[in-house]
């Protein structure tokens, strides 16, 4: 498009043009922040990036982060899918309250969530003790990390899944029932396959949210160190020089996974 064409368009649609310019500031802000750090690390100091990539402690903490968030997402899917379905299909007394409760983790500060989780799951509390008797400990353990990630990522999964189920006409299930499908079969032959893309993208968002959690995990499980905590620890002891390589590495890994998942979802969509 030539400049003249854009200017001519601007005369007819001045609002769209001005909004586009203003709006791009936000996008630039995000890109600049990340790109600046990644560029400085890769171009100006590639050596310490490679060192970080070869450091078993760093690798271990990144893998732990991805794995813990995967577990949290799995739990969110197993418990959240039925919840989302009920919310999408039925009206009941107190439904809007339930929906508000689902959103609570989004609005409370992460440190507050961490303290609340700690108070509930520490060994000295009733719940913590019950789990301890089953051999599950939360304080400074993988399960502490998972439970914190689950707490903050649940809304992302449940809301996406609910929207997915809502977008499917309940008449499809009804027709399936008349054709001889039980309610179970109607769910997994009709509704589930139609909602699966929503569930998948909800899971990706929940997983990404879990990976990015720091505050709540720091309080309930400082050790074993997940990547965000390791980065913070390095920053407080060795400053930018020690923390930035790990940060760049984590970002590259996460972006890579995120892009692959998004692309596979797109590919999937096209094949339909």
């Amino acid at each position: 498009m030539s400049i003249r064409k854009i200017l001519r368009g601007a005369k007819r649609q001045p609002v769209s043009l001005i909004f586009s310019f203003v709006g791009s500031i936000l996008i630039l802000f995000t890109i600049l922040t990340l790109f600046n750090m990644i560029f400085r690390q890769i171009v100006l100091d590639p050596k310490s990036l490679l060192e970080a990539a070869n450091d078993p402690t760093v690798i271990k903490s990144i893998l732990l982060t991805l794995y813990a968030s995967f577990l949290a997402t799995l739990i969110a899917m197993i418990l959240g899918t039925p919840l989302a379905y009920v919310l999408a299909r039925h009206d009941f007394l107190g439904k809007s309250m339930v929906e508000s409760i689902i959103d609570i983790p989004v609005i409370i500060p992460h440190s507050v969530a961490g303290i609340a989780l700690y108070a509930l799951f520490m060994r000295r509390s009733a719940v913590g003790e019950a789990f301890y008797n089953l051999g599950i400990i939360f304080e400074d353990s993988l399960w502490g990390i998972v439970v914190a990630m689950l707490f903050v990522s649940t809304p992302f999964y449940v809301n996406a899944a609910r929207e997915g189920f809502q977008s499917i006409n309940p008449r499809l299930e009804r027709v399936a029932r008349t054709l001889g499908a039980s309610q179970w079969k109607a769910f997994y032959r009709i509704t589930l396959p139609l909602a699966i893309r929503h569930l998948f993208s909800g899971a990706v968002m929940a997983w990404a949210r879990g990976v990015s959690e720091f505050g709540a995990i720091m309080i309930i499980a400082f050790y074993p160190m997940i990547a965000p905590i390791l980065i913070y620890y390095e920053f407080t002891t060795h400053g930018l020089k020690g923390s930035q390589p790990i940060a760049v590495l984590l970002i590259l890994v996460c972006l890579g996974i995120f892009i692959v998942l998004r692309m596979s979802a797109k590919y999937w969509e096209r094949r339909k």
Partner: peptide, 30 residues
Amino acid sequence: IPPEKRNIGFVYQDYSLFPHMSVEKNVAFG
């Protein structure tokens, strides 16, 4: 008695075909 045990054929105004199945699979579903 639940709908799946009544042996009833139902056709909605909006057709309500299963969008993720081919025509043949739709017809074969029952």
